[in-house]
């Protein structure tokens, strides 16, 4: 087969040696390091190649159609935000109103409350979510009792896999006036009588954050634990010879080693600061705490679908996307400046 011969000839140009059976790799594509699948495209004509790849074409075509319908048509639906959308009319028969809905949005006091709640719970979730996951990973990494280590890790994933409906049920049950939390607090003497936590507006952000930490800490720690497994054991040996305590080893070796992972995840999470969703707030909220539970998505849902103000709801969505993209770009630029790995 002439192709195999080609590979043998191309080999001197490649950084690593390739076995003759592996995919022939053009020298210019050597950055793929042999991961490139399929034969050399060569210089054959486009149509000729396409006709040979009928199967690949047929295997991807339906999904391209799917992507266009389910992912790109909704984006095209953004034009609704600049119209006074009425469902009975066609998309081109709508009345164009420019930025009217955005102006309305910025004049609504409710919108600022939703923004404040979204960012408040977003920042609390980011700070405590990151800290708890790193702390849990650090301590689990130090645990000497290996059976317990394995079991703790497996058990810590459990809440991640159950739905927010179930977690909301758990939180409401535990925090109810007869629940364990009130029992303990009254028993220890911190509280004189049980309080209904779910009916305290000032506690709502804290409850959502605590529920989030309870649910996701174990799962979020996976990635930090994987990074810690890659730290060179010789570093710890050397530190021990120098008489460093376990705390000092954690602080001076483990933490700096996983710094790039922490920074990449922080950037991704800051980009998602405004995309905290609405599930927790919708399920844990009630009429009494509504003022603290209203987040941007719930606001869009109430106005956009509940009150049939489709154009207004779409404008809220666009605002959210724009903020999200700005946050990602800022963080990415910042990471580039301090010389850590960029996300893109």
């Amino acid at each position: 087969m002439s192709r195999i011969n080609n590979t043998a000839e191309a080999q001197p140009n490649l950084p690593e040696s390739h076995s003759p059976l592996q995919t022939p790799v053009k020298p210019g594509f050597s950055s793929y390091k042999g991961k490139k699948r399929g034969p050399d495209p060569g210089n054959k004509g486009f149509l000729k190649r396409l006709s040979k790849q009928k199967a690949l074409f047929l295997m991807s075509f339906p999904f391209v159609i799917w992507l266009v319908i389910f992912k790109y048509i909704p984006v095209a639906g953004w034009v609704m935000a600049f119209q006074d959308y009425k469902p009975q009319l066609g998309i081109f028969e709508q009345e164009w109103v420019g930025f009217k809905h955005f102006k309305d949005l910025f004049n609504e006091p409710m919108f600022y409350r939703a923004l404040e709640n979204t960012l408040g719970m977003g920042i609390l979730g980011l700070v405590f979510g990151t800290l708890s996951a790193i702390a849990f990973a650090l301590l689990l990494n130090e645990l000497r009792f290996l059976t317990l280590k394995k079991w703790t890790q497996t058990i810590s994933y459990l809440p991640h896999f159950v739905s927010w409906v179930i977690v909301a049920n758990i939180v409401i049950t535990m925090l109810s006036p007869e629940g364990i939390v009130n029992n303990l607090l009254v028993g220890v003497g911190i509280l004189d009588s049980p309080i209904n936590f779910m009916a305290q507006p000032d506690m709502f952000w804290g409850i959502v954050t605590a529920a989030d930490v309870w649910k996701e800490t174990g799962w979020n720690a996976i990635i930090y634990l994987a990074a810690m497994a890659g730290v060179d054991p010789q570093l710890y040996e050397a530190a021990k010879v120098d008489g460093a305590s376990r705390w000092r080893q954690m602080w001076h070796i483990t933490l700096p080693s996983i710094r790039p992972v922490i920074i990449v995840l922080l950037i991704l999470n800051i980009g998602n600061l405004i995309n905290i969703g609405f599930e927790k707030q919708m399920l844990l909220g009630n009429n009494i705490v509504a003022e603290k539970a209203l987040v941007i998505d719930l606001y869009a849902l109430d106005y956009g679908i509940g009150m049939f103000r489709y154009s207004f709801g779409t404008a809220i969505g666009i605002f959210k996307s724009v903020i999200s993209i700005i946050l990602i770009l800022i963080c990415n630029g910042f990471a580039k400046r301090i010389g850590e790995g960029r996300v893109f």
Binding site: F70, K71, P74, G77, P87, D297, A300, I318
Partner: peptide
């Protein structure tokens, strides 16, 4: 992503 409302309309 299109967001909640455009997806609902779709």
């Amino acid at each position: 992503s299109g967001g909640l409302i455009p997806e609902y309309m779709l």
